[in-house]
């Protein structure tokens, strides 16, 4: 996997942290997963081809599901994150850099890929922490899992298909449950805004 492809995946991930519209963010994580599937399909081995198929099916299924949810829960206007766009981007990049500095090389076939994985996990965590719209929380998890899918593709021992398949199955389950909650939260509070979900404290 060349450096440009890793940078493309990281760039798509950072864009999820900063864009305003939910539908655009859904498109970004879907394209990201499809790029990963394309990279896996480009590799020669049989298990990578199966991993590519699992990734592609997961990308299309999740993208369709999340766009359907967006269409069913139209917000009158985009929910503003509590933190400005530039600050969000800056914090996400800082978290990604901190992770790449803290975590030593762990054995993937390229340090660049390892940095890309850590950056995507960092961006996923930043999306959950910094965005208020509930759908962005789900997208943060998908983003982090895309990073882990990238790591699984570069495992030296050829276990990528099983991991991709397992992650795809679990991620789809979690996303389905999250959409049930999102729709009910939207119906109850009139918006998919996590700011309304801060009443339980001690």
């Amino acid at each position: 996997m060349n450096g440009a492809l890793v940078w493309l995946l990281v760039g798509l991930g950072l864009a999820v942290v900063v864009v305003r519209r939910r539908s655009v963010a859904v498109g970004l994580v879907t394209v990201q997963a499809l790029v990963l599937a394309g990279a896996a399909a480009h590799a020669a081995s049989g298990t990578d081809a199966l991993a590519a198929a699992a990734l592609a099916v997961r990308a299309v299924a999740l993208g369709t599901l999340l766009l359907f949810v967006v269409s069913r829960t139209r917000e009158p206007r985009p929910i503003r994150a509590g933190i400005a766009t530039l600050a969000r981007g800056g914090l996400a990049v800082a978290l990604a850099l901190a992770l790449t500095w803290l975590v030593p090389a762990f054995g993937l076939d390229s340090r660049n890929v390892e940095r890309g994985v850590l950056a995507l996990v960092g961006f996923g965590a930043a999306t959950v922490a910094l965005r208020r719209a509930t759908l962005f929380h789900v997208l943060g998890i998908v983003l982090a899992e895309n990073g882990l899918a990238l790591a699984a593709l570069r495992l030296p021992n050829g276990s990528s298909f099983a991991i991709e398949l397992g992650v795809a199955f679990d991620l789809t389950l979690v996303a389905l449950v999250a959409t049930v909650f999102h729709e009910r939260i939207f119906a109850e509070f009139g918006a998919g805004d996590s700011a309304a979900l801060r009443t339980l404290r001690d």
Partner: peptide, 9 residues
Amino acid sequence: LEAGWKYLI
């Protein structure tokens, strides 16, 4: 809903 959402995410 709040509790379930926090738990899930």
